[in-house]
């Protein structure tokens, strides 16, 4: 299947949930997904369209739009296409369903996005900080308005 037929299959199955779908190049699809049904969309992608490889899952902060994006990059071994799906979440209370039940390797991606952006993944099996120490938990250091950077001048520099 090429990119256009995948888009038509997705939008035909989920006309409400998939919007702004476009073909970026021959091998890249960009689409936006409603956060409520992201698990069903991922399950359809994996089981019916054989997109079995979750390459990456990440967050992105947009303070001017007051939104945090959760980005899913999903590849396939059968089709030469990579899908980039984005779910837009409100910035003050970002919550989305976890997709660990579909893609097991989303576990650590979601833990990292949680500790860096504060995106709360519902029904995640073990949602705790992955890399950061305890003292940084709750500060969400990758958000654009994070203010906790060290301002002590290193004395060795001067």
């Amino acid at each position: 299947m090429d990119a256009n037929s995948i888009i038509s299959s997705l939008t035909g199955k989920f006309p409400e949930d998939i919007y702004d779908a476009s073909v970026e190049s021959d091998i890249r699809i960009v689409a936006k997904v409603k956060p409520e049904n992201v698990v069903e969309v991922c399950r359809y992608l994996k089981e019916d369209l054989s997109f079995g490889h979750l390459c990456c899952e990440l967050g992105a902060d947009y303070p001017d739009r007051n939104e945090i994006e959760t980005v899913y990059i999903i590849g396939s071994y059968d089709h030469p296409v990579v899908i980039t799906m984005k779910a837009l979440l409100p910035r003050d209370n970002p919550e989305i369903e976890s997709i660990v039940a579909v893609y097991w390797n989303a576990n650590w991606y979601e833990r990292e996005t949680y500790e860096m952006y504060g995106v709360k993944y519902l029904n995640h099996p073990d949602l705790k900080p992955l890399l950061l120490p305890e003292e940084l938990h709750g500060e969400w250091p990758w958000r654009k308005d994070y203010k906790g950077f060290p301002n002590k001048t290193a004395r060795n520099l001067v």
Binding site: L132, P133, L136, P141, G148, F149, P150, K152, N156, L157
Partner: peptide, 18 residues
């Protein structure tokens, strides 16, 4: 180790090791 290097001003780097 001396100043933080390229990671100076990172949120997770400790400065002034001395």
């Amino acid at each position: 180790a001396i100043s933080g290097g390229p990671f100076y001003e990172s949120y997770s780097t400790r400065q002034n090791i001395e």
